[in-house]
Design a protein around this nucleic acid. Structure first.
Lengths: 129, 129
DNA sequence: CAGTATCCTAACTGATACTG
DNA sequence: CAGTATCAGTTAGGATACTG
């Protein structure tokens, strides 16, 4: 097995997330952000309005939901549709790329939820937030 | 299809990550933290020493690596082995639970790395960090 | 080598109040 | 309804120096 003699440029072009300046780092940070994970997860079920998302994610503030949605939208994971009615009606849904990442996030979330008991019973498990 | 008439207690016991106080939230935050993701990813290849991890993850500081390793260890995702020699030699490796979550994280990371071009070419993609 | 201790800044976060 | 604006507190994060 031969090792690739990796230059920094090689790594950036390849999209190597281990290179500090690689754009994939930023994308990864956005989708794995505290609220990004949960927003992507709830949107898997379909199109939702701002208030519906907020209601489904316990503890998220208006500010962070708005900010997270804007980031995910600008990254191309979420699309935003404004219905020009009064009172306002805005829908959010996953793009094709969003469905891909959200599916993978959901696999992770599901495993953790499903193995919570196992994890918490471990003698080394912490309670800290 | 009938809806589950969800109490908060139900959701916590089920390990529902959408409930703000659920312990799965904290675990999820730890493994999806900026450095947690990368540490879990590099450890998939096998046992590594502190300095090896630090070298492989571009841009991580000593402080954040130490902190991230301690958190992942206390959550039961990483195990730490001290070899009582001088100079010190400490090994880190994934536990069984760690391998499960790291595998799922890797699926996400791989997809993003592999589709970077697609994501960046999107007209809505941002450059921000 | 593998960290810890200290200091400092910037970013994240939430509460509240307000707007179209 | 769907946000934005503002403010204040907390935490994340990095640089440097130091220890066993």
């Amino acid at each position: 097995m031969t090792m690739t003699p990796d230059t920094l440029t090689d790594r950036l072009e390849r999209g190597d997330v281990m290179a500090a300046q690689c754009p994939s780092r930023a994308l990864l940070r956005h989708v794995t952000s505290q609220w990004g994970v949960l927003v992507l997860t709830v949107l898997r079920r379909g199109t939702l309005r701002y208030s519906e998302i907020r209601h489904r994610i316990g503890g998220i503030s208006e500010k962070m939901l708005a900010q997270t949605l804007r980031t995910l939208e600008s990254d191309g994971f979420v699309s935003r549709t404004v219905h020009p009615v009064v009172p306002p009606h805005v829908d959010y849904r996953l793009t094709a790329a969003g469905q891909e990442v959200a599916g993978r996030i959901a696999d992770l979330v599901d495993w953790i939820e499903g193995n919570l008991g196992l994890l918490l019973s471990s003698d080394t498990a912490s309670l800290e937030g």
